[in-house]
Design a protein around this nucleic acid. Structure first.
Length: 284
DNA sequence: CACCATGTTCCTTG
DNA sequence: CCAAGGAACATGGT
């Protein structure tokens, strides 16, 4: 469930629940989920430490832990990949099929579940250094974004997925931001004029901000025990079945009318991934 | 069986 | 060294 808004909503839900909890025991069921950290190192290092905070950078979660004996900070990096989920589960509840890492916190256990195992929970925090600017913390267009676009002939859609120009956008919100900015996903990045870049940056921030606030007001089910799965952009509330339809303007809406102009939304493939756009609204 | 899926990284080619 | 394109990773849904 992972783009910036979903990760941020998860962070808000999780932070209070794990703060000050001590990791009594560590169980690793999938060594791959820790890469490149080894199981032995991970278990030895994390066991006995205490959660002191949870922050986010792009789509990454940064767990702040403290080694009890030495009081030294111990950062843990989490990424949900395509199908990762993190939540607390009562101690003796049955474990999900794809539980990758389980941290015993006493009354509850912290579960990192990941069906496809593309995500990770690791001691290696180096990926953070390669990330571009944080969209919600930069009201003005950052230089990295501006210059990154100017020296690429790739399509603007592809560049939005490159985490070094702006951190946190994924396939859904890249399409949504371009629709909002009224820019064609096929535009070569270097062809964007300053005015268009400014409009795009603003749209990115608006789309992400709305998604975060939307996710924050929804009674999410991160525990994985209910019927809905916590993937809030697809989750439909029983009391508001059209919720999802109204939230995403173009993503996964191929063949349906544009909510702004009525033109049929089209799907196209860029870099092996689907892009959705309105040919009427996004001519340039 | 086919194709699709919210992501990143590695390998090749130019 | 860089940019760009594509496959790989792994599982499940339709």
């Amino acid at each position: 469930m992972p783009e910036l808004p979903e990760v941020e909503v998860l962070r808000r839900h999780l932070e209070g629940a794990i703060r000050d909890k001590v990791v009594r025991k560590v169980e690793v069921r999938r060594a791959r989920s820790l890469r490149p950290t080894s199981v032995g190192t991970f278990v030895r290092t994390v066991a006995g430490s205490k959660f002191t905070g949870l922050s986010r950078r792009g789509k990454y979660l940064l767990f702040s832990l403290q080694v009890t004996a030495t009081k030294k900070p111990l950062p843990l990096l989490g990424h949900l990949g395509m199908s990762g989920r993190m939540y607390l589960l009562p101690k003796r509840a049955p474990l999900p099929k794809h539980a990758a890492v389980i941290l015993d916190l006493g009354k509850h256990q912290f579960i990192f579940e990941d069906t496809r195992y593309f995500g990770r929970l690791t001691l290696d925090t180096s990926p953070i250094a390669r990330l571009g600017p944080e969209p919600l913390e930069n009201a003005r267009v950052p230089t990295d974004f501006d210059e990154g676009l100017s020296r690429s002939k790739q399509s603007i859609k592809m560049k939005l997925l490159d985490q070094t120009l702006v951190a946190g956008l994924g396939n859904i919100y890249a399409s949504e931001a371009l629709f909002r900015a009224k820019l064609s996903p096929r535009l070569p990045a270097s062809q964007l004029k300053p005015e268009q870049i400014a409009r795009l940056w603003k749209s990115i921030r608006q789309v992400l901000t709305e998604a975060v606030s939307c996710g924050s007001t929804v009674p999410l089910n991160f525990s994985g025990t209910g019927k809905r799965d916590g993937l809030f952009y697809f989750g439909r509330l029983p009391e508001a079945p059209d919720f999802y339809e109204e939230r995403l303007q173009v993503y996964d809406r191929a063949g349906k009318p544009c909510l702004r102009c009525g033109t049929t939304i089209q799907r196209l493939v860029q870099g092996n991934r689907s892009t959705y756009f309105c040919p009427g609204c996004q001519k340039q």
